[in-house]
């Protein structure tokens, strides 16, 4: 059987790609097309967790209704009361010298 020249096979492949509308890429160069072809995952990703309805998100949804989150109000009031009794959270350190973490290490 007579051997076929490589150039003839290449020409055949080029013609074949032309007919079937596929891209002719004899050196298998990476075109990055797979990143464009791939399905977008974002829309399905954000729907993974079921949406939780609680009072704070409900109030955010209707800001004009004048709804009050009683639990949140109570929490804020408790913080104010604690601060009055000197039981509030400590002040944030302004300088590295103030930091309590450093004192422990020494």
């Amino acid at each position: 059987m007579a051997s076929i020249a490589a150039s003839r096979i290449a020409a055949l492949n080029r013609l074949r790609c032309n007919i079937f509308q596929t891209s002719y890429n004899p050196e298998s160069i990476r075109t990055g097309a797979k990143y464009l072809r791939a399905r977008l995952k974002g829309p399905s990703l954000i729907n993974y967790y079921p949406q939780e309805i609680n009072m704070s998100t409900f109030i955010k949804g209707f800001p004009d209704e004048g709804l009050v989150d009683l639990d949140e109000e109570q929490r804020l009031q408790d913080i104010i009361d604690k601060k009055k009794r000197g039981k509030g959270t400590p002040r944030k350190a302004r300088t590295p010298q103030e930091s309590r973490r450093n004192k422990k290490r020494r």
């Binding site: 160069i29 990476r30 075109t31 990055g32 097309a33 990143y35 464009l36 791939a38 977008l40």
Partner: peptide, 10 residues
Amino acid sequence: RAYLYVARNQ
């Protein structure tokens, strides 16, 4: 995806 396409395109 657009940047990936450019960066991976030989």
